[in-house]
Amino acid sequence: MAIGQSYREIKIWLSDSACIGLSPVSPELFARSCPRFIDGFFISIELLVLASLFGFVIAIGLAVARTSNVGALSVPAFVYCYVFRGTPLLVQLWIFYFGFGSFGAEGLGPFWLVFRDGYWVGLVVLTINTSAYAAEIFRGGIVNVPHGQIEAALAIGMGWWTKLRRIMLPQALQISWPAYSNEIILLLKGSALVSTITVLDLMGQTRTVFSRSYNLEIFLYAILLYLVLSGSLTIILRILEARLRTPTQMSRQH
C-alpha cells in the first residue's frame, strides 16, 4: 500500500528529525527514549484523529435519530447513548479486548482480525464512546435551532432531508461546537486508557520506558507531550469554531 508506505516513511523522518533536533536540549533520559516517545505520540494522534472523525459521523446520525419522533429510530439511539455514556471507558475497553477477545478466532470468525489487536479494539471503543457523548452534544444543538427557522424551511417547501442538511445541522454544529471541542479534548485524555490493552500509545510507551528505569522524570515528559497535543488540538478546534460562526449583531455595520 503506497499510502501506508509513505505514511510510515514520513513518521520515521519526523521521529528522526524531532529526536535529533531535540537532542542538544533534551535531558539524557529523554534523549535515550526519544524514538519511543515520538512513536507513542503518533499512535495517540492516529487514534484521536480516526476516532473523532468516525465518531463525528456516527454521532450526527445518532443525534438525528435521537431527535426523530419515529420510535424505531430514537429508542435504539437513546439506548446506545445511555449504555456507552453510562459506563466507564476502561470497562468498555476491557470487555471488548479481554472479554470478546477471549472467544478467539473460532468464536469471532472474521471479527477476530479486529479483536485480536489492541490498536483496533482501542479505535473501535474510542469511536463508540466519543460518538455516544458527541451525539448527546449535537442533539442539544439540534433541539436549540430556533423553531421559526424550521417553520420557514417547511413553509418554503423543503423536505425532511433538505431541511436537516441545509438549515438544521449547520446551525446545530454552530451551537454545539464549543461543547464538542471539549469532548475531543476529553477523548484525547481518555485515549491514554488504551495503554491498558497493550497499545503502545504515548501513555503505553511512557509506561514501557518507566518500567526500565523507574525514574519518575519520565512522566514529566509524557505530560509535556500531552500538553503539546492538547494545545495544538485546542488551536485547531478554535479555528474551526471561528469559521463556523456567523457574524452577530455585535458586528453590525451600517
Partner: peptide, 23 residues
Amino acid sequence: KKAVRLARARLAMVFQSFNLWAH
C-alpha cells in the same frame, strides 16, 4: 408529503418574527 411540499412551494409565507436563516 410530496404533494404538500409542492403546494407549500407555491404558497409563500412571511412570518411575524421574520425567521430568516441565521447562518
